[in-house]
Design a protein around this nucleic acid. Structure first.
Lengths: 348, 348
DNA sequence: TTTTAAAATGCAATCGATTGCATAAAAAAT
DNA sequence: ATTTTTTATGCAATCGATTGCATTTTAAAA
């Protein structure tokens, strides 16, 4: 195998110093344009490729961003990653991606790996069961910027990119109420995570605001696995009064449950109206089509990386500790739309 | 910012040479176990982290795998990536992931980036419109192992991980014929790619075998974008005789089209039976549920990385140029199952 | 006790690119 | 023609870990 070409090879050939070659290649202003041309030309001819390890070692930067997500294969996450990749790629950054599989333990491990890999920044969306913040501390201490997205943590030194989960939870619930629902069920994920906690707050606020009952029956926490829809059916069956409206924070789960409900003889939305979350493609296929909240996933990925990069490049535009709240929006479809729209308090 | 701890710090503190520290940390056999313990202990105390750049620079290895996929946010791809990440992570490798967005141009760029990043190996699934092989050549020349997965290319020096697309295409088609379909339509992607080419061959073979018509109407090539289902509907409308069975190579597209067909008054499967591909979760939600071919995506990712790693670590178990064919399987659901099963040639 | 073999450790070069500081060359000013 | 500026380049150290070879220490054999 032939050796790699290095700046030394170019220097020797051109009878100049490696320092000059390095500067020429990096567009250092103090280099004569003629010299630069000669260097560039020869570099091209020899197929020179800068050795990133040497460069990184010297510059103490990796031009690599670390990303930790709960899982790679979810509609929202893979879309976020897609957005991230596009922007990172454009900006000349590499992405190292790893998944926690919803386990704090693995998240911690991954964070350590990222740290050792000397990523220039960390982008992270927390696992269901993450309690501690310890694995993030080393980054903060070393002044490696950390951006939380989707499932965030409030920290004075970290930027976060989110949607307004409270508002969306509130709107979704109010929409159900507006459709005449008065006995609501909310199916969601681990309340350790802001996304679910805030949506629940929104749900609760709306329910309270309209004087509807809010009991322990009104809330079902699940892991959104294959078993979840069965759990929902069981809850429906065991409730004193079956719910007439369900707000899921996950479309896939909502869709599967709709299938089961229909099988069990419930009409959707007449008996039970349903609203989901994310605007997963599945929502346009299930019948009736699923009302949901459109999640700006690709955009979220793009913004998160954009923010990080401009931070790294020194063009601080967003100061630390602030949150970027993206616009999310309810999409109303058949699963929650009843014939006659009920008007409540003149609000809907 | 406090400086990083290096092996020199440890060496100084312990009054031994950096070489010994390095060997101790890497478990070199010639190191006294007492010394090793002392080094490990101090390393832990000082929070020592090996500098990968220095290590990579010296060892000329990156412990990083490059992955190029058409898109990150597709059910199959994100699942493959999920499997890859898990195994890579276990094996101490990082994953750099980038997407071609189905464009050869971007694929070439990404390959170059991977090359410059000195990935230890390349895993790639080709874009729709990739014609050349030139961007892979540098890897081959430099003896960097390349593994193709899903959308592969036949090359004597590259391993590939695939399913038996021909067989699956054949089986899916034969199943439709077995259900009494005699005027079939095949909706698929770019024939530049083996996955679609082979499934088409399977389709064609079955159609020919049973003496069914095969005209230019029988084939529709699409990009599987949001427009695709409309294109299918148009084809159905313009065909001399509307098809009584459609074989899609993509579940999402099949599901969306089913919705449209039902709206247009076709009964599925009575008027038009449908089979998809991938076993996307959507297939269990659309009504009727979609018959499809289960795609072992996670497994494919796992195997691909496993193969690469054992290659890198020298435990060649699969020789170059060979193909690993994973088991895929038809899943029959309502969209293709007609009341009375027709028996053909005693085969079904 | 001496010799030989085995086990541990150290020396010093190496992997390539970068950069502060010094110096040389060219251009401008006196 | 000489001095001052400006512009280009070079020198040499640096970033940390690794490793072939030499050397020292320790243990085993004679």
């Amino acid at each position: 195998m032939k050796k790699e070409t290095t700046i030394y090879d170019i220097a020797r050939e051109l009878n100049i110093s490696p320092a000059t070659v390095s500067r020429a290649i990096n567009g250092h202003p103090a280099i004569n344009s003629k010299t630069k041309e000669r260097v560039d030309k020869l570099a091209r001819e020899l197929g020179y490729q800068s050795n990133r390890f040497a460069s990184n070692l010297r510059k103490q930067r990796s031009h690599t961003l670390g990303v930790i997500v709960p899982r790679l294969n979810s509609v929202v996450m893979s879309s976020i990653l897609s957005g991230m990749e596009r922007i990172a790629n454009e900006g000349g950054y590499n992405l190292i991606i790893s998944q926690s599989l919803e386990l704090e333990k693995k998240e911690i491990e991954n964070a350590r790996t990222m740290f050792n890999s000397r990523v220039d920044a960390l982008l992270i969306s927390l696992a269901f069961d993450t309690d501690t913040f310890d694995h993030i501390v080393p980054f903060i201490k070393k002044k490696i910027p950390v951006v939380f997205f989707d499932r965030v943590l409030d920290h004075p030194l970290c930027t976060s990119v989110v949607i307004d989960n409270f508002r969306d939870g509130y709107e979704a619930t109010r929409h159900l109420i507006g459709q005449g629902c008065s006995n609501l069920l909310h199916v969601t994920g681990s309340l350790k995570r802001n996304v679910y906690r805030d949506r629940l707050r929104g749900f609760e606020t709306a329910v309270r605001e309209f004087g509807l009952p809010y009991t322990e029956d009104s809330l079902l926490i699940t892991g959104f696995d294959a078993e979840a829809p069965n759990a929902v059916m069981e809850r429906i069956a065991t409730m004193k009064t079956a719910p007439d409206g369900i707000f899921f924070t996950n479309d896939a789960c909502a869709a599967s449950t709709i299938i089961l409900m229909k099988k069990a003889g419930y009409r959707v939305p007449e008996d039970i109206a349903v609203v989901g979350f994310n605007d997963d493609p599945i929502s346009k296929v299930v019948e009736p089509n699923l009302s949901t909240v459109h999640y700006p996933a690709i955009e979220m990925g793009e913004i998160a990386v954009q923010t990080i990069i401009s931070h790294l490049e020194g063009n601080l535009n967003v100061n630390q500790g602030s949150a970027i709240v993206l616009r999310s929006e309810m999409v109303i479809r058949g699963s929650s739309l009843r014939e006659k729209e009920t008007v409540i308090n003149g609000k809907c």
